[in-house]
Design a protein around this nucleic acid. Structure first.
Length: 801
RNA sequence: GCCGAAGUGGCGGAACUGGCAGACGCGUAGCACUCAAAAUGCUAUGAGAGUAAUCUCGUGAGGGUUCAAUUCCCUCCUUCGGCACCA
């Protein structure tokens, strides 16, 4: 080290001694301890104040801890919670752990550490991280989905579904991940690949527990009307449920009725062939000439993966059933019959009437196999739109909509609604999940295990078997039980629940997390639900958010709870991208760890940067320089607020009240970036003015929602700043007496003049006309009109030459 | 292909209900402090013209409505997210 560095070092020390500098390291630990010791974040279940339930999507306790992206949402809800507390609400702001799932189990397989142990370790680490940011969670209400006292109720709720016949066992061709060696729900297959590991999924026939979410399709759709959610998420759920209204009609094949679903009954005269799904049960009953060819096709179709099917969208395959014809009910015309895997067995009736002239898929197929194409609708735009009927005998000239009605009447078509939504495959062949509390008895069938919790037994090997059985199947002493009903030999269900089970109802449990008699007390539920604000990532749109609504609606319909929807208002967090504009991920090595940021700048700087970087529902790149800017701002603000004058100058008083009002307005709109900008402007404004004690106190209370440690330290009173109230502002004081009026000539800004707010149009025009900047534009021209917007502008409109 | 969201300086972004485009921050440049650097402070910073006052252009592209458009309407382009043979 050279001499100059020494001098510099000495100077810095002198600085610290002379002025009390902002030193986050010193103050943050102190206050975190204080808040914890004083139970500052505790929420009373019963209170006179109005309730406000502000909820984060709880994290999965991964080994890497949380990164700054997770924190963005947590900080936003924390700021909002602190704001609402100061505003007099009884705020519930809890946190917990969604801890069942594959990573912990995979870790166990690799290292032989029980998931319970690794999970506990990870939770401790993340909890430490959350506390180091000064997040105001009521930790007395902490929950953990892997705690038997918690999953006892997950199991109990499953049995409710079972009692009502909404949980049933079925042999199904399900999505199977060959790498995770487990079945998956539809929602967990993204782009033909496993949502967890990215391996292409295959089809496998496995006996599965299924939850009948399809019974709730209509309600799940309707409920969207009444909730304040981003339209994007609503739209995704709508599309996922995929309601379509149409008719079911019968074609006749070999004297047998073959029902077909269509939304375009108006195109019935254009039907030139019929297509059955390869799995259609009728096929085996027919006397087909080319039986072998058909069987070969069916086998091939069966073994296709989702990816293969997707890649074949533009190149459809199929085989004609030779010697078979179908009769069209409207005109008794005979049309050929095909099987093709572009027709899905699980949707509608598994059979379609093909109208190649007005359906793209049928068109592709007809072109390929040289089938007849008959145009029956005259359309203005694309051939698949509604229009006017032609080539349709008596129905010619009718509009599509009328034709659907009329044709429907004549052939006795049944009106029918179909949904894309399919039942929820609910069992997983893995270890680290809630055991399904069912005993399979040879005599009595599936019998509920009522002695809950049914705890997850310890096993030696976590490895999935790959046979379609879970690792639990290997523990004979656990599996073999007596049937609770007949006492005979029976076996436990060895499948576990999917990772989404625990999160379907966790928002109830925070409210009453120690209740041993019920999953929630009825009165508490009535008082506290729905959740007022729910914040999390958009990736859960058709997973957690759909599943949770389903469970909630089921409980509501069963009379167990009193609210029809769980989450009144939902907002999505925008991703925090790495410096390179890419998603943060461990493998790319571009993850920003909050621990490092706090170590360098402190928690308050991190909090404010997370909020200041941009609108919180937007994806934004992390920028190290930006944090420095926030740190600079906090240093300036620290110096300004820590040495106040006795009394503020009058313009400062007004400014502060205006500032508070603007901050409040933006917070109500969930805007967190602009309030911070207002404070930055204030720093600049006040630098050459007098700021008094009273205003400092107001500012500290308001700013404490963003920088709690910082404000608590300057506050320096006996009681915590958290116990204060949001400052009242003097509306009379902040009313402007004068305003700047924009002066436009022909819509172009030419001048700006200060007037009293009450100035009339005439007064303003008179004065403005005399101003040089205006005169030169209107000189010698005729004024056609003057537009006056009070308190804003006047626009002098001239006659065009 | 279908559905949804979004395009504003060198960068992140701001702009109420159609009414000053570019707040605030970053970066950059200059200056001050310093032997020097860092830190800090001050000034400037959309493009072009002009010594200046000021003017012209400017919110993805083109058109429209309006006294007035980043904001409303139409067409198109680009990016991102979702769905993907759902009859």
């Amino acid at each position: 080290m050279d001499r100059s560095a020494d001098i510099n070092y000495c100077r810095n020390i002198i600085n610290v001694i002379v002025i009390m500098k902002y030193n986050p390291k010193e103050i943050e630990n102190k206050w975190q301890k204080y808040w914890q010791e004083h139970n500052s974040y505790k929420t009373e279940t019963v209170s006179d104040r109005p309730k406000m339930y502000i909820l984060d999507m709880f994290p999965y306790p991964s080994g890497e801890g949380i990164h700054v992206g997770h924190l963005k949402g947590f900080v936003a809800t924390d700021v909002y919670s602190r704001y609402k507390r100061l505003k007099g609400f009884n705020v519930l702001h809890p946190m917990g752990w969604d801890a069942f799932g594959l990573p912990a189990e995979n870790y166990a397989i690799k290292h032989g550490v029980h998931p319970e142990i690794s999970t506990a370790k990870n939770i401790a680490n993340i909890k430490r991280q959350l506390m180091s940011v000064g997040l105001s969670y009521d930790w007395d209400r902490e929950i953990n989905t892997t705690d038997p006292e918690y999953y006892k109720w997950t199991q109990w709720l499953f049995l409710k579904f079972f009692e009502k016949g909404l949980a049933y066992k079925k042999m199904l061709p399900i999505n199977w991940c060959p790498s995770c060696k487990t079945g998956l729900a539809n929602e967990e297959v993204v782009d033909g690949k496993c949502e967890r590991c990215g391996t292409p999924t295959t089809k496998k026939d496995v006996e599965q527990w299924v939850l009948k979410i399809t019974d709730y399709a209509e309600e799940l759709l309707d409920g969207l009307e009444d909730i304040d959610w981003p339209s994007k998420i609503k739209e995704m759920q709508k599309n996922w449920i995929g309601k379509s209204e149409g008719h079911e009609i019968n074609f006749i094949i070999s004297d047998k009725k073959v029902p077909v679903f269509t939304t375009r009954l108006d195109t019935l005269f254009g039907c030139t062939y019929l297509v059955l799904a390869p799995e259609h049960p009728l096929i085996s009953e027919l006397n087909i000439e080319n039986k072998e060819e058909i069987e070969e096709y069916i086998n091939k179709a069966k073994n296709k993966s989702d990816r293969e099917r997707i890649s074949e969208v533009k190149d459809k395959t199929g085989v004609e059933l030779k010697g078979i014809k179908a009769i069209n009910p409207i005109n008794n015309k005979e049309v050929p019959v095909f099987i093709a895997d572009y027709v899905l067995s699980h949707y509608g009736t598994g059979a379609i009437m093909a109208v190649p002239a007005h359906d793209e898929r049928d068109y592709d197929f007809a072109k390929k196999y040289n089938l007849e194409i008959i145009e029956v609708i005259k359309t203005k735009g694309s051939s698949t739109e509604d229009g006017i009927l032609i080539n349709s005998s008596d129905f010619d000239g009718l509009k599509s909509e009328e034709a659907r009605e009329k044709i429907g009447e004549i052939i006795n078509a049944i009106k029918k609604v179909n949904y894309k939504l399919r039942d929820w495959v609910f069992s997983r062949q893995r270890y680290w999940g809630e055991p399904i509390p069912i005993i399979n008895c040879e005599k009595c069938g599936a019998v509920p295990e009522t002695n809950l919790p049914l705890t997850l037994p310890k096993v030696e090997k976590y490895e999935p078997t790959g046979t379609g059985e879970s690792p639990l199947a290997g523990i004979t002493e656990w599996v073999s039980v007596k049937c609770p009903k007949c006492g005979g030999r029976a076996k436990r269900e060895t499948n576990t629940m999917p990772q989404w089970a625990g999160s379907c109802w966790y928002y109830f449990r925070y409210l009453d997390n120690k209740n041993e008699k019920a999953f929630i007390d009825k009165e508490i539920e009535k008082k506290w639900l729905p959740v007022d604000l729910y914040v999390g990532g958009a990736e859960h749109a058709v997973l957690h958010l759909l599943y949770a609504r389903f469970w909630h609606k089921f409980l509501y319909n069963s009379g167990i709870i009193s609210t029809p929807e769980p989450f009144k208002k939902l907002r999505n967090i925008g991703l925090v991208l790495a410096f390179d504009g890419q998603k943060m991920s461990k493998s790319k090595g571009n993850v920003v760890n909050p621990d490092a940021v706090i170590d360098e700048y402190g928690a308050d700087t991190l909090r404010i940067y997370e909020m200041f970087m941009g609108p919180f529902s937007q994806a934004i790149q992390w920028n190290d320089q930006g944090i420095k800017g926030v740190y600079r701002f906090l240093n300036k603000l620290w110096n300004i607020l820590s040495e106040p004058n006795e009394e503020s100058s009058p313009e400062v008083k007004v400014y502060v009240d205006k500032l508070i009002k603007k901050v409040e307005e933006d917070l109500e709109k969930m805007k967190f970036n602009t309030p911070i900008a207002f404070f930055m402007e204030f720093v600049d404004f006040v630098s050459d003015k007098k700021l008094g004690k009273k205003e400092v106190e107001k500012l500290l209370v308001v700013f404490s929602i963003f920088a709690p440690h910082f404000c608590e330290e300057i506050w320096g009173k006996e009681t915590s700043i958290m116990e204060e109230e949001w400052p009242k502002i003097n509306e009379d004081l902040i009313k402007d007496e004068t305003v700047d009026i924009m002066i436009q000539v022909d819509g172009k800004l030419r001048d700006k003049v200060e007037f009293s707010v009450n100035s009339s149009k005439e007064e303003i025009i008179k004065e403005v006309k005399e101003r040089e900047n205006v005169k030169k534009w209107i000189l010698g021209k005729e004024i056609k009109d003057v537009v006056f917007v009070p308190k804003r502008l006047i626009n002098i409109v001239l006659c065009a030459e």
